[in-house]
Design a protein around this nucleic acid. Structure first.
Length: 585
RNA sequence: GGUGGCGUAGUUCAGUUGGUUAGAAUGCCGGCCUGUCACGCCGGAGGUCGCGAGUUCGAGUCUCGUCGUCACCGCCA
């Protein structure tokens, strides 16, 4: 027997018991005649102790052990002379009567403690050591707990968890596919799924009615802190439902997770349209933990001889509460910030409504006090506030104002980590014009149904057609999204043709789905959640890497395994593949 | 594809205008220590300043290139 207890469970009730523990050596404190060993496992740390009564044989073993050795310790639980209230096992210690090295360890490259001295790169390379740290392990425990909660909820709601294939067919729409060569079918490739989209719709045709899956998805696109090439979705689909049913079911799920995992009661999720989100927050994933909404001043600032405003397609403002005390330096910094290429504003105008009732702005030359007071009234600024204006092309300016709003929200401490404000963004546009290829793309995906009242616009003004599509946004992060699907093969064909797919191409790529729809497809709708993002939100992290056991780096490499890597000549031959560019290494 | 940050001891970092033998903390090794729990005290070892070229009497420091890494833009239905 390796252990009778874990390193986290012994208490004063166990005093006097003979026990066996196994675990990793966290640290040895050598006081000469006494030694203390902190023994760690998943469950906690227990202190082992030796003194003058300890047999010599144990000291002989002790001489050889170091940090991260795996040892088995037997002994008697006794009360500590000086207790440690900081740890749950701090009342007791184990007086050693036996000690065995189960596995030795080299000196680890960084300290394995709550606060490690290791940098990101090193911790990634030795991920299995980093995972020993409680702070990382807790993230993965949280992940498991959320997954369990999701399953409980959806199982209770009658959903069937169904697996779908990973080796599937490449489709041109959407993200770039990862592809897998087929040995048995020379020159042909599988694709890894970007999502199980089509399969879940086929399951609806199959009558499964309520489906879900916690499933890996793959997208071969450039990465970010919140984007990995392989990531996990909570994927769901329901039949005989309308948008409202889906929103209610999954609002319920999210609330249930908050309650079960964080014991937080979240209010009903507000719903705002895509266009309102863009107008008020400059984003389709607004952070509504704070207001500071955008006000359209396009017409209000025209006609004063300031050509920037006069010639602008759009001028808009946000009001920084208490911002009148921003220094010249603060404002210059913000101005430079919005002028960075990533934001792309040409400049920034400020109006300070000082607490002594005076007004100071960077456009005093063009606007007198009455003009400025009028703007202050429109924006509903109070004394002590500051208004910031950006001007230019409408979409770009709204986007820049949205970014500025978030930046100031961050600076002002308004984006509080443990405050959660979910909302639904609805009525997304169905299509999105791509200037480069001069065609429409599906904003969500090609199976998304247009709003009934907008269907006729498909022929006349496709860009204005709204979709029955929705996103769940929490704290400025897109957590999930879905849509009501097309279940009518006529409408689906129409959609393909608007997307520029010929009938032949559509049949080649999606023929099996169109065929399926010929045999009685139920009305259906669904949603998918970014599981990694959801967990990182609960964990209070900005990066999803620390909620993934073995994540990849910025360039999609696994620095621990050093993958991707080249394959042998034999493997290439077997797959009928030829490498045309010189390989690294 | 683009923009920016970083790369110096095992690790995390400092390193002045380009100027003597490149420092600190921590870790590691050795010694002392009977109540520690980030134990303490004393001593010691440890460096291809990412790599390559260039400028210079002289480069950790400046320039160019390259590699690695992180963040962002494009991209991600």
């Amino acid at each position: 027997m390796y252990r009778t207890h874990t390193c986290g469970e012994l208490r004063s009730e166990n005093i006097g018991q003979q026990i066996i523990l196994s675990g990793w050596v966290q640290r040895v404190r050598d006081l000469g005649a006494m030694r203390f060993i902190d023994l760690r496992d998943r469950y906690g740390i227990t202190q082992l102790v030796t003194d003058e009564n300890t047999p010599e044989s144990i000291y002989e073993v002790l001489e050889n052990i170091g940090r991260e050795y795996v040892i088995q310790a037997s002994g008697t639980v006794r009360e500590r002379t000086s207790k440690n209230p900081k740890i749950p096992t701090g009342e007791i210690e184990v007086e050693l009567s036996g000690l065995k090295i189960l596995s030795s360890s080299e000196i680890p490259p960084f300290t394995i403690e709550e606060e490690t001295d290791g940098g990101d790169e090193l911790r990634m390379k030795y991920r299995y050591l980093d995972l020993r740290r409680p702070v990382i392990r807790k993230n993965l425990e949280l992940r498991a707990s959320i997954a369990g909660t999701v399953r409980t909820y959806l199982n209770n709601e009658g959903f069937i968890e169904t697996e779908t294939p990973v080796l599937i067919k490449s489709t041109p729409e959407g993200a770039r596919d990862f592809v897998v060569p087929s040995r048995m079918n020379p020159g042909e490739f599988y694709a890894l799924p970007q999502s199980p989209q089509i399969f879940k719709q086929l399951l609806m045709v199959a009558g499964f009615d309520k489906y879900y899956q916690i499933v890996k998805c793959f997208r071969d696109e450039d990465l970010r802190a919140d984007r990995q090439p392989e990531f996990t979705q909570m994927d769901c689909e329901m039949s005989f439902v309308e948008q409202e049913d889906v929103l209610n079911t999954f609002e319920g799920l999210i609330k249930y997770i908050f309650k079960e995992v964080k014991n937080v009661d979240v209010e009903n999720f507000p719903r705002i349209s895509y266009s309102e989100a863009m107008e008020k927050y400059g984003s389709d994933k607004p952070d509504i933990r704070f207001d500071m909404t955008i006000v359209d001043l396009t017409d209000s600032v025209k006609g004063k001889g300031f050509s920037v405003f006069d010639n602008a397609e759009y001028s808009g403002a946000i009001c920084v509460q208490g911002g009148a005390d921003y220094s010249r330096k603060n404002i210059d910094e913000l101005t430079n910030w919005v002028k960075r290429p990533q934001i792309g504003a040409k400049g920034m105008v400020y109006i300070k409504y000082n607490s002594d009732n005076t007004i100071k702005s960077s456009v005093d030359k063009f606007f007198n006090t009455v003009d400025l007071q009028r703007l202050i009234n429109i924006v509903k600024a109070d004394r002590g506030d500051m208004i910031l204006l950006l001007s230019g092309n409408k979409n770009e300016t709204l986007n820049a104002l949205g970014e500025l709003r978030l930046e100031i929200g961050k600076k002002e401490g308004l984006r509080i980590k443990n405050v959660f404000k979910p909302l639904w963004v609805v009525d997304f546009p169905l299509l999105e014009w791509d200037g480069e290829t001069e065609r429409f793309f599906a904003m969500h995906h090609p199976f998304t149904s247009p709003k009934t009242e907008d269907i006729e616009l498909l022929d006349t003004d496709p860009g204005r057609v709204r979709a029955n599509a929705y996103d769940l946004v929490i704290n400025g992060v897109e957590i999930g999204g879905g849509s009501v699907r097309i279940f009518d093969s006529e409408l689906q064909s129409k959609m393909f043709s608007v997307l520029g797919l010929t009938r032949e191409k559509a049949i080649m790529q999606f023929g099996f789905l169109m065929n399926a729809f010929k045999y009685g497809a139920p009305p259906h709708a669904g949603i998918a959640f970014g599981f990694d993002r959801l967990v990182s939100l609960f964990a209070g992290l900005d990066s999803i890497r620390d909620v993934i056991a073995f994540p990849k780096n910025n360039a999609g490499r696994d620095v621990m395994m050093d993958s991707p890597s080249s394959i042998s000549r034999e493997q290439l031959d077997e797959l009928n593949l030829k490498i045309t560019t010189p390989q690294k290494h």
